[in-house]
Simulated scan of single mutants.
Amino acid sequence: MSFEIFENKIDLVERAYEIVYEALDVGLAQNGSASLMCSGGSTPGPLYEQLSSSDLDWSNINVGLVDDRWVAPDHDRSNEKLLRNTLLKNAGAAARFFPMYVEGKSAKEAVDQRGEEFATISLPLDVVILGMGPDGHSLSWFPNADGLAEATDPDNESLIAAVMANRSKVTGDELERMTLTYKAIAQSSTVILMMTGADKREVFESDDQSLPIKTLQKAAGDRLIVLWAA
């Protein structure tokens, strides 16, 4: 794992852009295609905006979500909406997008369908962009959530899992989620964790091994790049 510190969010985003661009460019050159899995939240939004206008061969890049709330794509808290408004436009509009939400189905009912679709993406995933909540969750790996054990089981061969979180200040009202699994993270070439604030750094550096972020660290291993700004 590497841990890089920045004075501000602008510099953090610039560094993230450098890493993502290079990783996708290498994937395209070596394999003819590349993959980028994206988290929601305000921190990576500017990164997605910048990437959308880059000169990467987006027609050969698979873009997906690391997790999403089980809400319609036009919902203000939908990660799909965030990506469509930031990354999947300009040159980025040519990418092949893998959504999670399925209208008319629960996350559990849709997990096999979405799992089959994500399974068409070649492994290892080239880049996974993550964040972390103040409760130590990443992706939708919420502490004590229904479905967490399956999502974080190293022996689970699926890339996708359904999760029902416990209500908290972090989750808000949207408890039903779909998320990438331990296998997806373990089968990724570059995993970027973008964080801001002293409180989150304290949680990340906690000795509490029960926190989901500790499971993430195990899954990502030395492929984890932490980018932190105060």
Rank of each mutant, 00 (worst) to 15 (best):
V71R: 08
L88A: 01
L123M: 14
P73C: 10
G41E: 09
E176P: 01
E205M: 14
L175G: 08
G197A: 05
M37K: 04
G221Q: 06
N85T: 04
A72W: 07
G41Q: 08
N166D: 06
E14H: 15
F118V: 06
D55E: 13
G136L: 06
L47I: 10
V127K: 08
K200W: 04
L125F: 15
F204W: 11
T43G: 00
T171H: 02
F3N: 01
I10C: 00
L227A: 06
S53R: 15
A219Q: 03
F204L: 15
I5H: 08
A93V: 12
G197P: 12
L180H: 03
I121L: 08
A186E: 13
V191T: 08
S2Y: 05
A165T: 03
D57L: 13
P154R: 07
S168L: 11
F3V: 01
R77G: 00
R114S: 04
I185M: 04
A95Y: 11
T181G: 02
D199A: 13
E14K: 15
S140C: 01
L36N: 03
Q113E: 15
A229D: 05
A151W: 01
T181Q: 06
G131P: 09
N60Y: 11
E205C: 07
Q217D: 02
E117N: 00
L83A: 04
D126A: 09
D222V: 00
E80H: 10
S39C: 15
A161P: 02
A186P: 06
S188F: 14
T120D: 02
A151F: 01
S2P: 00
D199T: 12
N156C: 08
V191I: 14
N90A: 14
D199I: 07
G221E: 05
E150F: 03
A184Q: 04
D146G: 00
S59K: 14
L82I: 10
K169E: 15
V203D: 00
S52P: 11
Q217K: 15
I192T: 05
F142T: 00
R223W: 06
M194P: 05
L28G: 06
N31E: 13
P154G: 05
D68T: 08
F97V: 09
N8W: 02
A107T: 01
N144T: 11
A145W: 14
E18C: 06
R77H: 12
I19D: 03
S206T: 06
F6M: 11
Y182E: 04
